[in-house]
Amino acid sequence: MKKQRRVFSPEDRLAIIQEGQREGTTVTCRKYNLAPSLYGKWKNKYLSGGVEGLKPSYHRIDPELRALEEENERLKRIIAKQALEIEVKSELLKKSPIQPRIKR
């Protein structure tokens, strides 16, 4: 059976840190089934950045921005394909001999 990942809000983290300061780190970690190293990371983030330090540090990319980036990549591929076609055609024109016109 796979263990489900728990998600703690910044308020929950702050409450756990405060409880750990009152009742002790070991007791609190056992109560919430937390690794002491995780508790230490939360505490260090709280001491260095306050409540803002406890917020998640990852940034979600705006869906509109992601769509624009995908369109940009698609257009770059189209341009690269066209540039390659032009280069191949110009190489073929260079190699093909010019036929002299016959006057009648």
Rank of each mutant, 00 (worst) to 15 (best):
G40L: 07
K55E: 07
D62Y: 03
W42P: 00
R13I: 13
N44T: 15
V51H: 12
K43A: 04
E11V: 12
E11G: 06
N33P: 02
S48E: 14
L47Y: 11
D62P: 07
Y39L: 09
Y32H: 15
Q18G: 06
V51R: 11
L34N: 01
A35Q: 08
R13H: 04
S48F: 03
V51P: 03
L65H: 10
K45D: 15
K41C: 12
T26F: 07
L65T: 11
V27K: 15
V51K: 11
G20H: 05
I17W: 00
G49F: 05
P10N: 09
R22Q: 12
P63N: 10
A35C: 08
Q18H: 14
S9K: 09
T25N: 12
L47M: 11
D12G: 02
T28Y: 15
L34T: 03
T25D: 10
Q21M: 11
G24V: 04
G24E: 01
S48W: 02
L54M: 02
P10L: 13
C29V: 12
V27H: 10
P10Q: 10
K41L: 13
Y39C: 05
P56K: 01
G49V: 05
L54E: 03
I61G: 05
S37I: 08
A35D: 15
Q21D: 09
R60W: 10
